[in-house]
């Protein structure tokens, strides 16, 4: 799916985060040779069309020099506007920068990214957090794939593997085994995930064996709290990009879907991949059937 992308939709609200991710957008345009669409959804009761259009025309002005660049202005609710625009298109990558840091608690905040990830079945690029001033445009040579629970599916892995093969990158399979405590007894009832480091390592190696032999694969397993261990694994493996499934990136919160906090500290590119039943069937045949 990633390698077939012919349009990159960069949804912007002209925030500092939107400006900070411009180098990453340029990197994707260069890598995929795709058309770039800058999408802004404005509130007509607050901003006039003319003002919004002037802002959009001046935002990321250098994109005018790209071979194919469109600027699209839509009015209405931002989440609804972005979703309906993306639903009308195929083979797109949606780029959604995170909100600016406010430094204030936001108890009633509803994550637009999480709502869009939950609703749309297109790949979505984002960041856990933006460090304004730090470059986010490193080439995607080391591609990590987060494998949380087996129930989340493996279609994101298949797509990441295809992308790694085509770009000549290295694929890193990441898994963190939960700490052993009193609650560990409940886990086998809800998930078929591995319970120990050796089992997890074997599980990941089985999966790696089903992938394209031309693709370089490395396996990284740790045990402990995921929020603490995942940043360490990312640092240790030198990842430039982490691919996760839509299900693992979004969790249910009090006020609706929210971005999973375990990815909140990731300052590298996060690509959320939708569930594709075609890939799931393929992986099932390759892993489960021979094992049986």
């Amino acid at each position: 799916m990633l390698h077939k992308i012919n349009e990159i939709v960069f949804a912007t609200d002209f925030s500092d985060s939107s400006h900070a991710v411009i180098p990453a957008v340029a990197q994707w345009v260069d890598t995929l040779g795709a058309k770039l669409t800058l999408l802004h959804v404005y509130n007509p009761s607050r901003t006039m069309y003319r003002e919004a259009d002037a802002l959009l025309q001046s935002f990321f002005a250098e994109a005018d020099n790209y071979p194919h660049c469109d600027r699209v202005l839509v009015s209405g609710d931002p989440a609804e506007g972005i979703a309906s625009y993306c639903e009308r298109r195929s083979n797109i990558l949606l780029m959604l920068p995170p909100s600016d840091l406010t430094g204030l608690p936001r108890p009633w905040h509803r994550s637009m990214r999480a709502r869009l990830i939950k609703r749309l079945s297109v790949p979505i690029w984002t960041l856990g957090r933006v460090n304004v001033g730090e470059s986010t445009s490193t080439p995607n040579r080391h591609i990590g794939v987060w494998l949380g629970e087996p129930e989340e599916g493996l279609s994101h892995l298949q797509q990441a593997a295809q992308y790694a093969s085509e770009t000549g990158g290295t694929l890193h399979l990441l898994h963190v085994v939960d700490e052993i405590n009193e609650g560990s007894l409940i886990k086998p009832l809800t998930s078929g995930g591995p319970m120990g480091e050796e089992t997890a390592d074997a599980w990941l190696r089985d999966i790696a064996n089903t992938l394209d032999p031309a693709c370089r694969v490395e396996v990284h397993v740790a045990q402990g709290r995921v929020s603490r261990e995942l940043p360490k694994l990312i640092r240790r493996s030198g990842l430039n990009m982490l691919v996760a499934s839509h299900q693992s990136l979004v969790k249910r919160g009090w006020l609706g879907p929210a971005i999973n906090p375990i990815f909140g500290k990731c300052a590298i590119s996060l690509v959320s991949m939708p569930f594709y039943s075609r890939f799931e069937k393929l992986m099932h045949e390759e892993i489960v059937v021979p094992a049986a």
Partner: peptide, 20 residues
Amino acid sequence: AHALRCHLRKQASLPEMRTL
């Protein structure tokens, strides 16, 4: 001028060079 801007901002300049 465009390439120097991209170079300093660590931004890919090739898409712009293709057009220019």
